[in-house]
Design a protein around this nucleic acid. Structure first.
Lengths: 335, 335
DNA sequence: TTTTTCTTCGCAAACCTTTGCGCAAAGGTT
DNA sequence: AACCTTTGCGCAAAGGTTTGCGAAGAAAAA
């Protein structure tokens, strides 16, 4: 298509020496005379020579590309994590190729296969919401291709992961509610297959116990992390004979949807129902009332995931499980 | 690092034929006997052979990678556009590599050079806020590397672009305000170098004229698209002897910041000051009052940009300028 | 039988880079 | 004068794929 860029061959012809000599000259090989080295580097600059990564990749069997698979792109959470991954990738001379699974197990498999075809050097990903079997990662592990999970993880014994302290955070939220005098604390949970859902439910129950409250199955609702399902869950909760006086959403999308529904029904936040989200999207501060939420170190999470990849890429080391601390940011919605 | 995957060579050795024969067999070349073709394809499946894109890329001088440069990743707007680009890229067998300029002209140049080193087949990008000279695109044009701009554009005579009807939309907002009886309509504009800022200011003035209102320079404030600068601009506007009764923000970030400041000063929206944003981020519906805004077809914008790239990639055609329609979504903040 | 025509495959070059090895000329040592 | 070392460079292979051309063998035509 576009004309071929200048190669070592071009330089060699101009300098009237062999290709291998030019190659050495550019890399300051001691075998090459200072004058020729000088001339070659000078010419390379003038002609804007840059080594062809495909040729090097072919030779070294390394593309310097990291594949990244996210369930969704259009969220503060994932965009910020990608941003973190990108930042360390750049520092270390890697490129990242993004693929989106759209929360679909099937698409997740497609993305995986697709990125492997590209010969990525590793994959950093977050499981889709539908993913509940994990055999599709076998080929990666068998081929020694570094794999890193973040947030939603599996097979932690084999694959390095970076997650947040979900259970502790969820416990903290529940205890925060209890400390405000709330007694009927509800939780809108996520898909049961996901570790994040499980851990947050665990933390929720731990918090209840710590506050001396009994677990009430009616107050534990399920959602698929979407606004619609969260709205439905909220409606069911509010329709209870004894509706909750506090709701803890599994993420901020859930909490925003709950907030809308609560307000739509003319109930006051936090007077009638206190509300807390999870993830701390940027807009938590712009809604009214401002949403109490669990701040995730998203950028840091991305950076850590990338560093875990680098760790695996340099030498095969045992998989590390990094747990990042979150912080409960208390705002108007839960006071 | 990781072991080399199976290549044509591997297959050739097993089948006891030459590499070129296997290559032809897999591509159903008529020169190869049906039985051998059959056997080769069978074996390729069993061994999970997939052609090495580096080798093909080297041969064809094509990486099937599109470089994408955005000023920021962590926004609904850009994430959604990237999503659109990705969707058509996948359909056409391309990969996308994302780079972020962080609104910096210097970083924009770095990203550009970096992606060119990777030998991307084209670049789809949005100008950084600081970018006001455009010579750094010369090498691309000279090398016939397809380039596409979206939203913030330049050199439209040479480079295909996809934008929204900024002036018409801005005019529409202003007239909407006027129709509600507003008389002192302010605009918080963006960096003057950007086409989007210029066009929206033009539309603003066009709308004023159409409504029979005089332009008042005091009511035209500048921002750098950040929340902080928008807050400052809002403070200046509200401190005016005759403060505005309507504010039109150059984007939703600006509008959100303005909303916070207006509320902080104890003024009512829309009673005292009506407010309209631009871009319709998802959270426009969750703030209180819900924000009137201009809905952008962001996903469509990404898709269009990718299609424009494909257009350039197949054959050099004159650059097209695509203008997408927006829609003013009227909500509580301006009624 | 000899020549022509298919059929079916292999050789080699090209894309670009790196690197082990070899080789020539120049200088130095005995 | 004969030998050894250094200096400075080229050859060739390797990595995986595609493709024009040549070639061997078989079948068909003369």
């Amino acid at each position: 298509m576009s004309k071929r860029p200048v190669s070592l061959k071009t330089l060699a012809q101009v300098l009237n020496v062999s290709i291998s000599t030019v190659s050495r000259a550019l890399r300051n090989h001691p075998d090459i005379s200072p004058e020729l080295t000088q001339r070659a580097q000078q010419l390379a600059r003038e002609l804007h020579y840059s080594p062809n990564p495909l040729a090097i990749g072919l030779l070294k069997n390394a593309t310097r590309i990291i594949g990244v698979i996210v369930p969704a792109l259009v969220t503060h959470f994932f965009a910020s994590i990608i941003s973190g991954i990108e930042s360390v990738a750049i520092e270390r001379g890697y490129y990242i190729v993004i693929r989106c699974s759209y929360e679909s197990f099937e698409k997740e498999q497609e993305c995986l296969a697709n990125l492997l075809q590209l010969r990525v050097e590793g994959i950093i990903m977050c499981l889709s919401q539908e993913t509940s079997t994990y055999a599709h990662f076998d080929p990666l592990l068998a081929a020694d291709i570094p794999l890193v999970f973040f947030d939603r993880v599996c097979r932690p014994a084999e694959v390095p992961t970076v997650v947040v302290d979900n259970q502790a955070a969820a416990c903290g939220i529940t205890r925060h509610f209890a400390a405000q005098g709330r007694r009927r604390i509800a939780h809108i949970a996520g898909p049961p297959a996901l570790n994040i859902s499980q851990e947050r439910v665990l933390g929720y129950r731990e918090g209840l116990a710590a506050a001396g409250l009994l677990f009430d199955a009616q107050l534990l609702e399920l959602s698929d992390l979407s606004a619609d399902s969260a709205t439905a869950a909220t409606q069911r909760l509010l329709a209870l004979p004894q509706p909750p006086d506090a709701i803890f959403g599994v993420n901020d999308t859930t909490a925003f949807a709950a907030m809308k529904e609560i307000k739509r029904q003319g109930r006051r936040i936090p007077a009638d129902v206190a509300l807390v989200g999870f993830t701390d999207e940027y807009h938590a501060t712009v809604v009214e009332p401002m949403l109490t939420s669990v701040m995730h170190p998203t950028f840091e999470m991305g950076r850590t995931a990338a560093l875990l990849f680098l760790e695996q890429a340099t030498g095969p080391v045992p998989p590390r499980q990094v747990v990042l601390a979150t912080q409960l940011v208390v705002r108007e919605s839960s006071l």
